[in-house]
């Protein structure tokens, strides 16, 4: 008799908790995949497609599903791989492409024929111009994705690296500077 009571109590508990969980999963349903958003926040949003996916979000979705590696984003660099590895608990891998310095596209305005092909290719609308009018790039908005280079029929777009300037200069990590000792000192010590 007692054993039946115990089973009944456990069964009742299971039903109540199950109902609560079921209610919670409907009531507090999370729209979208929070992991994808977290991954996307790490990606540099250049929308360059160098990872083989048509934009940063598809790449983030592919990573979240475990379909592809975390080392396929050259603009994110080694640091991006490191941060993705930290987030996902995966192993850090070397970047599968060359890491390039940051650059902006520049149109040689004398050569531009105004074909608008680059305007259509730019994923962030950073090129202004109209048909048969000169085009130019808004350097501040350019992500350096290089997607405008292949469509240009006259090859008037080039990538120019953004060098170090006073605005973006950073203090370096303090490290012990190893200075060469002049040979005279060596000679003295030896003597």
């Amino acid at each position: 008799m007692e054993i039946l009571l115990a089973i009944a109590i456990m069964a009742l508990g299971a039903v109540v908790l199950g109902a609560a969980l079921g209610f919670a999963s409907v009531k507090f349903k999370v729209e979208g995949d929070p992991l994808v958003d977290k991954i996307e926040a790490i990606l540099p949003q250049t929308q360059c497609g160098q990872c083989g996916y048509p934009g940063c979000k598809p790449y983030a979705e592919a990573i979240a599903k475990g379909e592809c590696d975390i080392n396929r984003c050259p603009p994110g660099g080694t640091e991006g791989v490191q941060r993705l590895a930290d987030l996902l608990g995966r192993e850090v891998k070397p970047l599968d492409a060359e890491e390039k310095p940051k650059a902006v596209a520049v149109i040689d305005e004398n050569t531009c024929i105004g074909c608008t092909l680059c305007i259509q290719a730019c994923p962030v609308d950073a090129i202004v111009g109209a048909a048969k009018q000169m085009h130019t790039i808004i350097a501040q908005q350019c992500t350096g994705c290089e997607l405008c280079l292949p469509p240009c029929p006259v090859e008037c777009i080039s990538m120019q690296p953004i060098g170090e300037n006073i605005e973006n200069w950073k203090w370096k990590h303090p490290i012990l500077a190893i200075k060469p000792v002049p040979p005279a000192v060596h000679a003295k010590e030896a003597a």
């Binding site: 996307e40 990606l43 949003q45 250049t46 929308q47 940063c56 962030v124 609308d125 950073a126 992500t143």
Partner: peptide, 11 residues
């Protein structure tokens, strides 16, 4: 990156 994302999504 945020600005690029917003512009990309708008496009």
């Amino acid at each position: 990156a945020d600005e690029a994302k917003a512009r990309y999504e708008f496009k």
